[in-house]
Design a protein around this nucleic acid. Sequence first.
DNA 1: ACTCAAGCATAACTAGACGTGATAGTTCAT
DNA 2: ATGAACTATCACGTCTAGTTATGCTTGAGT
Lengths: 320, 320
Amino acid sequence: MDTTPDLLTLRIVRTISEHGTISEAARILGYSQPALSQHLTRAQTRLGLALVVRAGRGVRLTEAGRALASHAVTVLNAVDAASAELAELAGLSSGTVRIAAFPTASSTLVPRLIRQLRQQHPNLTVNYVEAEPPQALQLLRDGAADVAITFSYPEDRADPHLSRDGGHTTVPLFTEPVVLVLPDSHALATADDVGLADLANDAWIAGCTLCRGHLLALCNLEGFAPEIGLETDNALAVLNFVSRGLGVALLPQLALSSLTLPEGVSIHSPQPSSERTIQYVIQPGATRIPSVAATIAMLTALDGASWGLRDYPESERTAR
Amino acid sequence: MDTTPDLLTLRIVRTISEHGTISEAARILGYSQPALSQHLTRAQTRLGLALVVRAGRGVRLTEAGRALASHAVTVLNAVDAASAELAELAGLSSGTVRIAAFPTASSTLVPRLIRQLRQQHPNLTVNYVEAEPPQALQLLRDGAADVAITFSYPEDRADPHLSRDGGHTTVPLFTEPVVLVLPDSHALATADDVGLADLANDAWIAGCTLCRGHLLALCNLEGFAPEIGLETDNALAVLNFVSRGLGVALLPQLALSSLTLPEGVSIHSPQPSSERTIQYVIQPGATRIPSVAATIAMLTALDGASWGLRDYPESERTAR
DNA sequence: ACTCAAGCATAACTAGACGTGATAGTTCAT
DNA sequence: ATGAACTATCACGTCTAGTTATGCTTGAGT
């Protein structure tokens, strides 16, 4: 005989002890009278003892019923506390979201995202970590981040997003062009569109690991291997190197949007043109986590145009 | 969206937080793995938020999951306490039974009953109140007693047991003869059987209200109205009155069995013979109250023969 | 004593919850 | 690469837990 009461039984017994009748308890708890009557008989059968006995035209709690009623207060208070905490989390009156994003986003997308989140959900705690896409994905896998904001080059065959597709959900947000940066001294500095093949003999300045991979892949398609003279993660440094005539470079549009262009460099559209995709990545099913849902809602609502980003085509914006 | 968790969800979440995986939780809780997996998805749908997310080949609790797990400890401890108290009541390691019985039983049936109960259930608290049948029934109705031990005369048309038949359950236990008590000085003192009609002109000594009613009904059947000179509830007083030659009396066998017969009285079988029934009365459904069940089990096991009682015919021993 | 209203129990029915085993897909480690 | 561990999903049967409709008992007020 299982003497473990269920929550409804506790609620019923408590309400009966407070209001005296089953019918009134049913009204208060929002059930029909037979529902409670039957639940009680079932519960009593399960428990193997009586909780109520008829008394006149009402009922009276037995000793066991009174015992349950007194415990019910404790149990239901605790349950209500749990419920309230869940409601808070669901309503974002509390909760935490941990965001990881690549460095360039730190000065563009992320500040705006966090400001909007703070404004709309003042009680939501937001943590932010800067990390290149592979590291951001690792943070996600380790449970150290809830949302990773990353980018992909469509040509990248080693894209970490593809390698373990089942382990996370990737949703594209924007595409941005990759632009060519030439020093004014360069022979093609006055052209609008510049063929990459025409730069086969130039010195190249490479960005972060991923961007460098992209550069290599792109040049490979054009039939040459670029000579890479300098490497740096820092977009501003790249620009300065170019302005001193130390080489040419490809940079994503977003990297430029938060910088003022130094003297002596010019922006061009490379031929063939190229672009990268900015996306967010979450744990599968994490849309059910309110803080995450709020964050990605905010993200998709962000207007990328101010940074030269284009919304990813809606028709193709599907989770992977 | 109802954010109230149910007990199983709390148990599951707690166990997952302690043991890390759903499968292990299922083993511990005695379910199949799909059962918990499905229960979790249902719970998460109900709650409107995620409690677990996949992580590698296991799962990890979300913020909400961890919140629930911590509340689960409180809730489940309280539920377990309630369960333990019910188990105590069910196993009669605690509990109370309140018994009401008519005065004559106080010195015969009841002491033996209570002694047996105490012996078999040392932790059961037994309360006893002496009350004539109508009062005992009232105590039962008021919830002031759990078991009433009463008697009925079959001729009694005003028997309170009959008046509100639905309000309680009556189970006959024994029948006992009603005997005639005559003083030695009486002309019929040497006869075995004595016709009541032959005592039409004697002075009568009446017992309690119910017994007096019985006497009147009986004499009425025989065609005379007895002259009642003395009344007393006390059977010993009745006997002493008779021994002094103050009258004749009818007494139930049980009343005599605990007394030593005074000098100068003799016991006879009245004609027509008469008997009363000793029974217990409980609230309907009260057999599900362990302390009551134990008491009536004890009662039906009592051997009435030592007091001159006869077991009520088994075939007719049905609850009314 | 009769009648009415309050309250509980029961019946018949339905929808959904809740188990099960079988199976497939991931992930991690050897 | 292979296997072990873990979770998710499917198909299925059973039982739970509600519903409305209805009848019975009780207490109160004519």
